[in-house]
């Protein structure tokens, strides 16, 4: 992080990418607010330095919602200070970031439960209730 320019490291380089992404986000958020299509930006597909990324995260800031998912590795989602602009960071095995994106959408789809999962859950729940009502006590079920 030396500023004398003798041996620049990658940490120091800002390419201006954060600002150009902010402009794209502003434009798409306007479209969404007027009833247009949601939009998403894949951050891993864009060449950004560490500094670019930090700049973008700082400019977007944090809003009212923050969610942690635990499915096929962890995920962290938060709404930025701009309503409808979400930062979504998925981790793969270990602590590696597997994918990272900005979604411009009312609610990111991954937060909703899927119809088939709800159907399977409903079946399981009613099976469990039926078992609980049987007169002979069961051994503790395996899928607790």
């Amino acid at each position: 992080m030396t500023a004398d320019g003798a041996t620049p490291t990658l940490y120091d380089i800002s390419t201006g990418m954060a600002m150009s992404l902010m402009q794209e986000i502003a434009e798409r958020l306007g479209i969404l607010a007027e009833g247009g299509e949601p939009h998403a930006i894949d951050l891993l597909g864009i060449p950004m330095s560490k500094r670019d990324r930090d700049e973008l995260e700082a400019m977007l800031g944090r809003g009212e919602v923050e969610v942690t998912l635990d499915v096929a590795g962890a995920s962290r989602l938060w709404e930025t200070q701009y309503s409808g602009v979400w930062w979504i960071r998925h981790f793969g095995e270990g602590e590696r970031v597997a994918s990272e994106r900005i979604e411009i959408v009312p609610v990111p789809e991954i937060l909703s439960a899927h119809r088939l999962d709800m159907a399977a859950a409903a079946r399981r729940l009613s099976d469990e209730l039926a078992q609980a009502n049987e007169p002979i006590p069961q051994e503790e079920s395996a899928h607790v």
Partner: peptide, 21 residues
Amino acid sequence: SRRALLKYAGYLASVMALPPT
């Protein structure tokens, strides 16, 4: 759950440069 598939599809879209949507 389907969320796992959605998460993987998001990853695949990212590595295959498909539209994130």
